[in-house]
Amino acid sequence: MSAPEASQGRVAVITGAGRGIGRAVALVLARAGYSLCLAARSRDELEETRSQSGLSHERALIVLVDLATEDAPDLLIGAALDCYGRIDVLINNAGWAPPRTPLLKMRPVDVDRMIAVNLRAPIALTRLAAAAMTAQGAGTIVNVASTAASKAPSGEAVYAATKAALIAFTRAAFHEMRLSGLKLSVIVPGLVDTALIPNNKRLARAAMLSTADVAHAVMQIVNSPAGACPVEVMLEPQLDPERPR
């Protein structure tokens, strides 16, 4: 049985699916035969992702949601279950950060949004999806973090903290999920060439990871046997994009 045939009837929920890593992951999952629940704040971007996936509207649900709001996880998981009746894969990809800002100049509203989108929402979505997956007896959850968690760049103190906390959450919850037959993993990529990285002559974009690199790593986790699922996958570019040449 081919991979697309094996995946028929299965459903993947992807946050931040309107562009970048989220779109790349959605397209790979669509090619593998999954129906999609695409979540983000921009309808136009989600419509473009759905168009590129080649899936019908019945197999590619669009959910407009702002994960900084407290009820967003319930609304998203509820919409996916109402539409499809199951969730087989959850990709917690959405993230947010302002431009690099010294801590003393950072606005409290930006701090709150980073914590909500980068940490609170993935935790809530993991809990809700895991409940549905446990009833099914299987499921995969992938969180997308960042090497900022360990490199902790100046001007990214809060962002780095949220990503470090997401890694710690995943590693702790990994063991609990395995007891229910679920897979939980976190991908920790270095700089990825997306629109979120501003143009900077000091950055070598060709040295960055591509969104396809991250999407392929996601699929390796999705396709791995439960007993061989890695808790953490590090993705490093071949060269340091920030190192002067």
Rank of each mutant, 00 (worst) to 15 (best):
E5I: 10
S7C: 13
V25T: 13
A26V: 05
A30Q: 07
A32H: 14
L36D: 09
L46C: 02
L46K: 01
T49S: 15
T49V: 13
R50F: 06
L55V: 03
A60H: 12
V63W: 01
L64K: 11
D66F: 08
A68Y: 11
D71V: 06
A72C: 03
D74A: 11
D74G: 09
D74K: 10
I77S: 09
L81W: 07
D82W: 06
Y84H: 14
R86V: 09
L90I: 03
G95E: 04
W96T: 05
W96S: 00
W96L: 00
A97M: 06
K105M: 12
R107N: 14
R113V: 08
M114L: 07
A116D: 10
R120A: 11
R120W: 02
P122S: 11
P122R: 14
A124T: 08
A132Q: 15
A135H: 11
A135S: 11
G137W: 05
T140M: 05
I141M: 09
N143H: 04
V144T: 08
S146R: 05
A148L: 02
A152H: 07
S154C: 10
S154I: 11
A157G: 14
V158G: 13
A165Y: 12
A165S: 15
L166T: 01
A168F: 09
A168D: 15
T170G: 05
R171C: 14
R171A: 09
A173P: 00
H175S: 13
M177V: 00
S180Q: 15
L182K: 00
G190C: 10
L191S: 07
D193E: 05
A195T: 10
P198R: 04
P198M: 06
N200Y: 13
K201C: 06
R202V: 04
L203P: 00
R205M: 02
L209C: 04
L209D: 00
S210I: 06
A212I: 04
A215D: 03
N223Y: 08
V231K: 04
V231T: 03
E232D: 04
M234A: 04
P237F: 11
Q238L: 13
D240I: 01
P241Q: 01
